[in-house]
Design a protein around this nucleic acid. Structure first.
Length: 921
RNA sequence: GGGUGUUUAGCUCAGUUGGGAGAGCGACGGCCUUACAAGCCGUAGGUCGCAGGUUCGACCCCUGCAACACCCACCA
């Protein structure tokens, strides 16, 4: 027997193990394929709220399609996450006092594999706790054997096609990692800095206004050491006569030219720009145009190198900045220093300030790859949901830059290139292939490229790579293109766009037909969750609960900035004074679905999950009620449904219809609302209450009772199937109790059909009847509530006026009205017959009266009437204004006008009745 | 600098061809009514950011403005 309140702890893990052991997550049957690939979680640690959100949506879709009979594959896998993982393992080793460089590459990579085996297990356990029905038997890793093969193949082919090339370029250089990174991995943030105005002396002569120097402005004084020119705008009259003359670069002594270039904005600063081609992207371009020498003044770890004057050599870049400013000050060459806000580029992983740095790297040409990828979205072959994100996609794709794909790191896919003694690069699937292809004898030494590829290079192959490419597999034919990609808007460029380009290029198919883009999970205040801020939350803590001290400990340990610990501890104590309750997986999943509004970030509020935990409990107890009242029930073939049975079946059908629409349009919020509203406010609030007097009345006819019990079970059973994709555990648990009573074969709800609307009949007549009943009951309840009549006290009821329909329904629903509104006697008054003093509700034209008889305070009742009269007056006024507007009557559709007329009649009828009533009191 | 989004009840958010402003939570009042106090019943609360325009009619369509958020970008 089911316990009195819902306790998720007991059921979830057992059920998941059962499902997995039974192989339910493996696609089966002969239905059409349906496939979603998981955005592979990084192996850097543990699952966060974003993963939980992401997976809830995917699992809902997968479970829905599986129930629809599709051969549904949810492809599992994890990402090696090159830089992120290397940093984590490096930090771990550091804490053990081990230096990466001392350890050496091979041993370090071994350590990372150890880490990945450990971390992978943690992630798998966490994902299982979310209830995610992934096919674990097909689990993949972006650096498994198959992926190494696929990555190599792709690299070699792109190189053969000339789309991958090696070159010396100015790239984004992360001095802390000493590696190149791509444009996307650089985050620009505004920071407070300074603008230094320096005087650069002319080698000879004077300026037009009689000075012997010009003034340049810079935010990076240390780059002065690498200046090879100063540029002015060609049309700038102030400097026209200086173009072609030279300056003496202070501190360095180099003679540098004054050049003219339209890049310079004459209105900004002095109109003179120092040009440092080796350390600034713009200056690089200017240098190229003017054939300027490039003087690199930095070492890979951002210290001043030997190309600079001796005094500055070996200084760290910010020390060098100070030294340059000091030296310039001493020379009297500082005009002034202003405060200045500037955009500072930082590495998204390391947080280090990025240097434009001249190095040899591998690049991918993107323009030709982007073209078909743009067309795929334009043509609708791929559809973004919400559509809005297509603009984001187009904007980036139409202005795409070449992709720096090599990383000076150890963890990742090795670049399949080898170098001979002269430094010439050979690309091939293996060293022997390279030797054969280029006729390189065995005695010619080849050195493998030490670098690895950007992590996103392999991620881009995810859909077809996981399905077996480059082999031609049955899975590729059945599941590719995949049906939908579900991911956050933060990786549209990193991942989605590159997947589209690579997949189209190599398979001539789109990777997926739809891309559902969801928002980011933020904390209750709308802040982005992060470990550094200490506002991150672990989904498992909402599932299992966590006490305050453990939570504080968890949030403040292993911080990259330990000094923040006290503040984080305090805010944690403020936000979760009693820790976090155990809400269970279903409540968490329901919360995510309910909050998945298109295109919006979600603020995760404990109040919401609490509400949905309560909903779980509601469902649980409704099931208990049904089970208690259907003990030993055997459904009969003859079905004689009452009005209420017909009504709830009809409403169930409407819910199913709404659910399907919601699921087909990826409106998880509407799906959740549809289920919640139906289950709580129709099935529980009304239908279960309606059944009580019938179930407990010995005079209820056997056939009617039997049908009632069948309906109780049937609707619950349909509801469980309908809700299963969102809340798998509770629905499975209850379903196993309920289904046998309907004669359904035992088993699992997850392999049942998703409800079809044809299982239930639409019944407008019954709907009207129950709406009538609700009107009567709500009217009486309003009177009772306003008059403060104790719920335990029964009232009598007088009915008057109304039509034949009212009399018929009143007779049919008498026991229901009595039960639902706690009414003792019901009596009809003839038209015109005077009634005792009473509180009045009007339903249609029917007068529903509760005799005052000492129960109700006359003054309070008058107030209640006046309030209702005011409301009705307003309504009548509004509608009559509308109807007296000839243009409205002439232009509005006939049905709208009719509707307004009916409303006016109803409202003014009620109004008249209530006004009469008020006078009579 | 360019672009996108958001602005609806105290809070978080729905509002699907323009035609009666909704939910959850919170607030207030009343209830241990034999599924559920994680519950039940009732009530209050909104000039739909601001200003115009189109229309018989605008939360919805158009224009402008404001605030906030995010994305992209090379201004020294």
């Amino acid at each position: 027997m089911m316990e009195g309140s819902f306790n998720p702890k007991g059921i979830e893990q057992t059920l998941y193990q059962e499902w997995e052991a039974a192989g339910h997550f493996v696609p089966q049957g002969n239905g059409p394929g349906y496939c979603i690939v998981i955005p592979p979680p990084n192996i850097t640690g543990s699952l966060h709220m974003g993963h939980a959100f992401n997976q809830t949506l995917m699992d809902t879709l997968i479970r829905y399609q599986r129930m629809n009979g599709r051969r549904a594959l949810w492809q599992m896998g994890t990402d090696h996450a090159g830089i992120a993982t290397q940093m984590v393992v490096e930090r771990q080793l550091q804490m053990e006092g081990i230096d990466r460089l001392e350890l050496g590459r091979d041993k370090f990579v071994d350590k990372v594999w150890e880490w990945r085996n450990e971390s992978g297990g943690t992630i798998s356990r966490q994902i299982r706790r979310m209830g995610s029905s992934l096919d674990w038997s097909r689990d993949r890793f972006t650096m498994d054997e198959g992926f190494i093969r696929a990555v190599t193949e792709v690299f070699v082919r792109l190189h053969e096609e000339g789309l991958i090339y090696r070159g010396t370029r100015l790239v984004n250089w992360d001095p802390s990692m000493q590696s190149a990174i791509s444009d996307l991995e650089v985050e620009n943030h505004e920071e407070q800095g300074h603008m230094w105005h320096f005087r650069y002396p002319l080698t000879s002569g004077l300026t037009a206004d009689g000075r012997d120097h010009i003034v340049i402005a810079t935010t990076r004084p240390e780059t002065l050491l690498g200046d090879t020119a100063v540029a002015v705008h060609p049309d700038d009259e102030r400097y026209a006569d200086l173009i072609g003359r030279t300056l003496r670069l202070p501190l360095v002594g180099r003679e540098i030219p004054i050049i003219a270039d339209t890049y310079v904005d004459p209105a900004f600063g002095s109109g003179c720009v120092k040009i440092t081609p080796a350390h600034d992207f713009n200056d690089y371009a200017v240098g190229q145009r003017h054939g300027l020498p490039m003087v690199n003044i930095l070492t890979p770890d951002a210290h001043i190198n030997n190309n600079a004057p001796e005094a500055f050599r070996g200084l760290e870049r910010y020390a060098a900045r100070k030294a340059v400013v000091t030296a310039m000050t001493e020379l009297g060459l500082v005009e002034r220093i202003d405060n200045h806000k500037l955009m500072v580029p930082r590495g998204d992983r390391s947080g280090a300030v990025i240097e434009p740095f001249l190095t040899d790297q591998w690049f991918m040409k993107m323009e030709s790859l982007a073209k078909p990828a743009i067309e795929a979205v334009e043509s609708g072959a791929i559809e973004f949901i919400p559509k809005l994100f297509e603009n984001t996609y187009f904007a980036w794709m139409r202005n795409i830059q070449d992709w720096t794909i090599s990383r000076q790191q150890w963890w990742g896919h090795r670049i399949p290139a080898w170098y001979d003694a002269s430094g010439k690069a050979y690309v091939g699937r293996s060293e022997s292939e390279v030797r054969n292809k280029h006729g390189l004898a065995a005695d010619i030494a080849l050195t493998p490229d030490p670098d690895v590829l950007d992590t996103w290079f392999s991620s881009a192959l995810w859909t077809f790579g996981t399905l077996g490419w480059p082999e031609d597999t049955p899975e590729l034919r059945l599941y590719h293109p995949t049906d939908v990609l579900v991911t956050g808007h933060d990786i549209i460029f990193f991942w989605v766009a590159r997947m589209i380009m690579m997949t189209l290029h190599f398979t001539h198919e789109v990777p997926f037909r739809k891309v559902y883009i969801h928002g980011l999970v933020r904390d209750a205040l709308g802040n982005k969750m992060s470990k550094t801020k200490g506002n991150g939350l672990d989904p498992l803590d909402f599932i299992d609960g966590i006490d305050l001290e453990t939570l504080v400990e968890k949030r403040t340990s292993n911080l990259t900035q330990p000094q923040l610990a006290p503040r984080i501890a305090k805010s944690t104590r403020d936000d979760f004074p009693a820790g976090i309750d155990a809400y269970g997986t279903d409540a968490m999943r329901f919360t995510f679905c309910a909050m998945a509004t298109l295109g919006r970030d979600v603020r995760f509020d404990v109040k919401r999950i609490e509400g949905y935990r309560n909903f779980c409990n509601k469902l649980w107890n409704a099931a208990r009620f049904v089970l208690q009242n259907t003990e030993g029930h055997v459904p009969q073939t003859t079905d004689t449904p009452s009005l209420a049975d017909r009504w709830i079946r009809s409403r169930t059908r409407a819910m199913i219809e709404a659910n399907k629409l919601a699921l087909d349009t990826y409106r998880f919020d509407l799906l959740a609302n549809s289920i919640y509203d139906f289950a709580w406010h129709e099935y529980c609030d009304w239908y279960l209450e309606i059944t009580k007097p019938l179930l407990w009345n010995e005079s209820t006819p056997a056939a009617e009772l039997s049908t009632l019990r069948t309906t109780l079970l049937q609707v619950l059973e349909v509801l469980l199937r309908a809700a299963h994709p969102i809340m798998p555990f509770i629905t499975e648990t209850i379903w196993r109790e309920v289904a046998p009573r309907l004669g359904k074969p035992s088993g699992t709800v997850m392999l049942q059909n998703y409800p079809l609307i044809d299982e239930l009949k639409d019944d407008p007549e019954a709907t009207r009847a129950i709406e009538w009943l609700k009107g009567i009951v709500l009217g009486i309840r309003n009177i009772r509530g306003e008059a403060n009549i104790k719920p335990s006290l029964a009232v009598n009821l007088l009915l008057q006026s109304g039509d034949a329909n009212d009399r018929e329904l009143a007779a049919a629903c008498e026991p229901l009205v009595k039960r639902l509104a706690k009414v003792d006697q019901i009596e009809w008054l003839a038209d015109g017959q005077s009634a005792p003093a009473n509180a009045l509700a009007v339903v249609g034209t029917l007068k529903v009266m509760v005799p005052l008889a000492g129960l109700i305070d006359l003054g309070a009742e008058k107030d209640r009437l006046r309030k209702e009269i005011e409301r009705l007056k307003g309504e009548v006024q509004r509608i009559s204004n509308k109807l007296s507007n000839e243009k409205f009557v002439a232009n509005a559709p006939a049905d709208v006008v009719d509707k307004e007329r009916a409303k006016a009649a109803d409202a003014s009828g009620k109004l008249a009745t209530l006004e009469t009533q008020l006078r009579s009191l």
